[in-house]
Design a protein around this nucleic acid. Structure first.
Lengths: 224, 224, 224, 224
DNA sequence: GATGAATGAGGATTCATTCAT
DNA sequence: CATGAATGAATCCTCATTCAT
């Protein structure tokens, strides 16, 4: 985890991106475009967003777009870039007792869900775009794999300490459980799947259930 | 699962569908179009599929398309229709000991995963389309909710029989665990996420791990 | 020279041309487009011709253009196709005395110049396009080489019959003399180079001078 | 050739040229732009050359271009300016025996072809631009007419001295024969037409054949 | 029913030229 | 003088949908 893929991937897509602006005005315009793009994308969706909507929203001419980006994918990448750190490294509260795996797990899940909720619109967008553009499919996969790998390491660690079911492959388990959490986050914060239940999603209930299921699944010892 | 989705309208989406063909030739043409549509969709994806590609593949004229469908959504609905039953009611092997919840769960998971694998291309398509067309988003959600409801009922039942952790909301748990399974199925059979692990997805390993995690999560009693 | 590159090169450019129309209406529309294209090209030049001008001239919608052609090059190729035979095989009057090389040469030059004059606008266009599009550069070169080869054969023949200077390489000579004629034709009928002389180009004077120069250059024996 | 083209305006085309730079820095920048323009034109062709390519190549900002030129035509004119003298007055070796018309002609042709070869890229460019921009069409024509007039004078002179066929109009003949030479030069040094002959163009062979054809065409007396 | 040509709104993209710094 | 970002008119091209045969 930590800094390893922080600097490695400066841009999301490997497109031959336009170079960064040289002047202050350029920086401002570019930023305006990225901000506008986020607004338009979140409002209209990736597919329905037209380049002119973005420039209009940013208050500049059509051509200006092409000073900074080559196409829609590229602005979208820039938009993601902005939220990237928060999405990849959701700051986790200090856990008092780092030896209590349940507490660590719970804090981790809460951090993940909170970050997801904070960036809900963007995450939904990500999901849509990943299903439309291979470039971003890869990006999404990488993000997922980063979490999976991190969690797999955690599980293996717990197995070594004999606090997790040893009969389970840590990677597959991580894949399953991480998927469970992200899938749930999507359902709760993006698609609002349970809206017709009449019941709203309660973050704490989510944290509680997911953590408990996860802990049970790995056979964490009962907390005394 | 019950009759809730099986009402009068045969079409998936609620579009004002064209009526079914009257003549034998009509039936044949329509069938050819649906088959062609599946081929084209699976080959090019929903978004990149052009109506003319479909008619070309079906070996008929462009205009003929509109004799049977009003637009792309509608053919796609017809394509789904074909695989619908298999996807909704994956035939489950008779389980000898219906009282062994683990065995039942395992059989159920195997049935689900097998069906998913059988219809992998289509499931991937479903996923893509759901992220693009609200009509199908609803359809996908309904399918998911059907499974969730079914599984929630199962969990509640087990709780009543005291073979499942009573401290967990059955619907939320079902949502989480069902999501875990479907997410995993997608990763394994559609996006081929783990291809770079060097390891192929092994169906039985999947069934084993998912079932075990699920059982653990609900605190099924140890099998003796 | 005969049919050797008559069927060989059905289309000028090797572009993946749209297939020919299946219905009579289609044939009509395509023809209208080609005719319109010729008008527009001759009026505005190749570079300044816009696709919409062509469709407007043809009296059809923009999109219709793309039913038959993929781009400007392709229509231009189609336009050339129409005049191709006349340009490649300018019908030559029967020459009474086929043994009189001077008479044959004169008839040949007259035929060439007449054909050039008939298709002057198009030849000018060809010249322009050849300087702009490599595809057509090749076409133009091929046309030129066809004439050069034909004439080189003629020269070699005369050398064998000892009626032409044997100390000259027939291909190089043909290249030079054929170029002289085509260059002159361009100057006279397309660019109207001598317009400021006050003197108009007189076809017969052209034929006379070019033929005489050519005959002298090859040292045809004096006609007695 | 005389002073007719050498009037006050140093620029080739009659565009309302910007005045020459006042400062030393200005001179340097302008020169850099002209040099860059030549590079870009020769590399990309006139039509595909973008103004920004030129400024980039010159290592200066886009706007700087407009300090010295109003548009593409004007830089191109400036580029031509540089090679102008060499192209218009190809230095001819002293011919020992100025009374030997064949020797004079040969020297003249060699000088012309050599100059053409030296400036091949630019001549090709000229040709392209002449077919695209009327301004330069005129320039090209003037250059051609200068050679034609000079040669016509020469021919008339020889006719007076009875060493050239008197039955030929000297201007028309000059037009034809000068065209023959320039056409050949273009074919040999620019379009590389004969590349597929397997034979390379040999300058001396060219000089020999063209001179001989020309001499024959005018019925120069046999050299003894 | 089947055919396939015609339609045209809609959006992306380029690049010469301007102008504030 | 130099800078380089901003401008936006001008075209190209696609493809769902219609309709005469």
């Amino acid at each position: 985890m930590s800094a390893e893929n922080r600097n490695a991937t400066p841009s999301v897509a490997a497109a031959p991106a336009r170079e960064m602006p040289a002047t202050a005005r350029g920086v401002r315009t570019r930023a305006a475009l990225v901000a506008a793009a986020r607004v338009v994308f979140e409002r209209d969706g990736y597919l329905d967003a037209r380049l002119t909507d973005i420039t209009k929203e940013a208050g500049c001419a059509t051509g200006t777009f092409y000073t900074y980006f080559t196409n829609k994918e590229e602005v979208f990448a820039a938009v993601l870039e902005g939220a990237r750190d928060d999405m990849m490294h959701p700051g986790m509260d200090r856990v008092d007792d780092a030896d209590d795996p349940y507490a660590v797990l719970e804090a981790s899940n809460r951090a993940y869900l909170t970050a997801y909720q904070r960036n809900a619109k963007l995450m939904g967008l990500m999901e849509q775009v990943a299903h439309v553009d291979p470039e971003f499919r890869r990006f999404r996969t990488e993000r997922a794999e980063a979490f999976i790998a991190r969690n797999a390491r955690g599980i293996a660690e717990l197995q070594k300490r004999s606090v997790a079911d040893p009969d389970i492959d840590p990677v597959t388990a991580s894949r399953a459980l991480s998927g469970m959490v992200s899938r749930m986050a999507y359902g709760a914060f993006v698609s609002g799947e349970a809206a017709d239940d009449g019941r709203e999603y309660d973050l704490e209930e989510l944290v509680y259930t997911l953590t408990r299921l996860w802990a049970n699944a790995l056979k964490f010892p009962d907390r005394t």
